[in-house]
Amino acid sequence: MKIDDHDHVTIPPNGKAHEPQPAWREEFPIDWPKDEFRSRRDFTKMLGLTSLAFVAGQVWIGVLSIMRKSRSAPARMDLGLLDELPIGGAKRFEFPSPGHPCLIVRLEKDSVVAFGQKCTHLSCPVIPNAELGKFLCPCHHGSFDIKTGRPLAGPPRRPLPKIELEIKDGRVYAVGFAEAGA
């Protein structure tokens, strides 16, 4: 390769002029501008693919959302007699299926609430503290309001999933999940 066209050929790696370059440069003429051009082109192609992957991720979330909406309502679950639970006391249960821990807390004589027990930060089990009026997460000191499940402090940003309850003939039933923000 002849080093004659400065626009198209090589800027020598040592940055010096073309003429005093050693003879081996003719044997191994690395064309730095071209090399840069190609590596930038490959990088941009990779960015294009990354962009496509993000679109795929968005569609995947959309599909999950549709699947969540079309899921049938969970079966009603008997949580036992309300009076079995002391005021300020809590009981653990699994709803809507095993492996989904939840907590029911009796706040007052006629007031009872239930939430998913997994912290919305990194899924540690939260612990109810009726005196403080909070669910406390021991992992990163997050806390949630015991009445609404809203995050109060620490890293969690989303509320605990609230479970709708029904009290009939002194018995408490879990009947489904409340809408977000309800």
């Binding site: 993000f54 679109v55 979330i61 959309g62 959302s65 919305t120 989303r158 977000a180």
Partner: peptide, 21 residues
């Protein structure tokens, strides 16, 4: 956009999912 959508989806806010997509 992806992280914000995931956050909203996990928080139960589905209405944002398709406009974000």
């Amino acid at each position: 956009l992806l992280t914000a959508t995931m956050e909203a989806f996990l928080g139960g806010e589905d209405f944002i999912v398709w406009p974000a997509a």
